[in-house]
Simulated assay, not measured.
Amino acid sequence: RAVFAYSHHGVFVGGCKVVHFKPERSPSSSSSSGDSSEAPCPTYPDCGFKQPKSGVVLSCLDCFLKNGSLYRFEYGVSSSIFLTRLRGGTCTTAPSDPLQTVIHRAMHLLQNGFGNYDIFQNNCEDFALYCKTGLLILDKNGVGRSSQASSILSAPLAALLSSPLTLLIPNPVGVATVTAGMYCMSRYATDIGVRSDVIKVPVEDLGLNLGIKALKKS
């Protein structure tokens, strides 16, 4: 992937399969059993499975990657390591739950949905983070769990806050260092591992917390 480009997140559930969350396509471009806008997977018949009106999809690893590179998101990293990662969407200080719990959440959401996709408040990284940690943010009006989304907001904010420092710090390197520090601290403050407005929500109760209804089984 390109440096600082938006990356797609998913949850590996075994058997070369990944459950992930993406924007729901219009009815004219999708079907109840898969994504008809893309070529059918030649290897796995169930690749592309999704429920109607849901953006949660089951894909094989090859179709998920689409010739891209595979990266492993890190959970339970220390604060010092988190602050050294300039790019968002690579790690969190929150620890991951046991594998079977993670897979249970992902498969439950494959059948019941994860609400409406929103690039800032409910995106693919939010989905993966919830499956791995079970954490949900109480403030529905703020930025979501995604560190990529917070990075998009943190970068211009850090640049804006540090701009007056150009009058006090004549060295461009010094200004850049301060700006980078503000950017990293802003990302750290929105990480689900350090936020105080997060709660552990059972996946069976997630629909109530997201304000959605379970998808009707076809």
Rank of each mutant, 00 (worst) to 15 (best):
Y71G: 06
V77E: 07
A94F: 00
I81Y: 05
L70K: 13
C91M: 08
Q100G: 02
Y71C: 08
N67G: 07
L86F: 09
H104Q: 14
I103Q: 07
R85G: 01
V102A: 12
P95M: 15
F82K: 11
R87S: 10
T92I: 00
S78K: 00
R72Y: 11
E74K: 02
E74N: 12
L70V: 05
S79F: 03
H104R: 09
L99N: 13
S80H: 14
G88L: 05
N67M: 05
F73K: 07
S69K: 11
R85L: 08
T92A: 00
V102I: 13
G89A: 04
G68S: 10
G68R: 09
L86G: 14
F82M: 02
P95G: 11
I81R: 06
R72L: 09
L86D: 10
G76C: 03
Q100L: 12
G88H: 11
L70G: 05
V77S: 14
V77R: 14
Q100M: 12
H104I: 11
S79E: 15
L99D: 15
P98F: 01
G76L: 01
V77T: 12
T84Y: 09
T101L: 03
R87I: 06
P95C: 12
L70R: 13
Q100K: 08
R87V: 07
D97W: 00
V77G: 08
V102S: 14
Q100V: 13
G76P: 10
H104K: 10
S79Y: 10
E74S: 09
R72S: 07
D97H: 04
C91E: 03
V102Q: 15
L99C: 13
R72W: 12
I103A: 08
E74R: 03
P98I: 01
E74C: 08
I103V: 15
L86I: 06
R85T: 03
A94P: 00
R72K: 14
T92E: 04
R87E: 13
T93W: 02
A94H: 01
H104M: 11
I103E: 13
D97Y: 02
T92H: 03
V77H: 15
D97R: 05
R87H: 09
P95W: 02
Y75D: 00
I103Y: 05
G68Q: 14
